[in-house]
């Protein structure tokens, strides 16, 4: 697998079965993780930020609900709040919107992916995990189009395979991987960023 790029940001989309895989992922990412992570998990409108607290406890990364206007930091993960779309601005700050649902979802994975795609271009990795609809497929096409890396969880392994399958059907997916391989890949990237920095010093 060629990894000769300096990726800076990861966007992740998931719905049904998502909490379990997000837990697995965030528990396994290495300390001093050099990338920023943005997550859209479809939630009920009544959810109250529990997920961010829960994931934060088990991860080396600082994981929080996204606040409007905050700047992306490495080693941090930001979860889209229930009932808000999450978008990225040109200056790498986050913004929220309560505009119409997109494909019945708010937050929408496509909305995050599309806005991140044109801000981060080839420094972006888009990942679609387990889920029950086709949100994220359109967004992955954008990420691919702007030079980012696209990854989908192996449908055979996903708790609900509809979302990974819809993503794969776009034909714009670079890698179909199991969770353990995704984790290994992301940790390797973080490691390479560290080495790259040392070399440049």
């Amino acid at each position: 697998m060629e990894l000769n790029n300096t990726y800076k940001v990861i966007v992740i989309g998931t719905s049904a079965g998502g909490l379990k895989v997000l837990k697995e992922l965030f528990a396994a990412l290495t300390p001093n993780f050099t990338l920023s992570v943005l997550v859209v998990q479809h939630l009920s409108p009544q959810s109250d930020g529990f997920m961010a607290h829960y994931l934060n406890k088990l991860s080396h990364l600082t994981i929080k609900e996204a606040d409007a206007g905050e700047l992306l930091l490495p080693n941090h993960a930001y979860i889209a709040p229930a009932n808000y779309h999450l978008l990225v601005e040109k200056d790498h700050s986050l913004s929220l919107s309560v505009s119409e649902k997109v494909s019945y979802a708010r937050p929408s994975i496509d909305v995050l992916f599309e806005s991140a795609a044109e801000v981060f271009l080839d420094q972006l990795i888009g990942i679609v995990l387990t889920g029950a609809n086709d949100d994220g497929a359109k967004g992955l096409i954008n990420i691919h189009q702007f030079g980012g890396l696209t990854i989908v969880q192996d449908p055979a392994e996903a708790e609900v395979s509809a979302m990974p399958l819809a993503a794969i059907q776009t034909g714009k997916v670079d890698h179909v991987l199991g969770m353990s391989e995704i984790i290994k890949l992301l940790n390797t990237l973080s490691e390479q960023n560290h080495l790259g920095k040392q070399r440049s010093i």
Partner: peptide, 9 residues
Amino acid sequence: YNKAHVKRR
């Protein structure tokens, strides 16, 4: 206005 939203619309 924040641009990401405006541009999207």
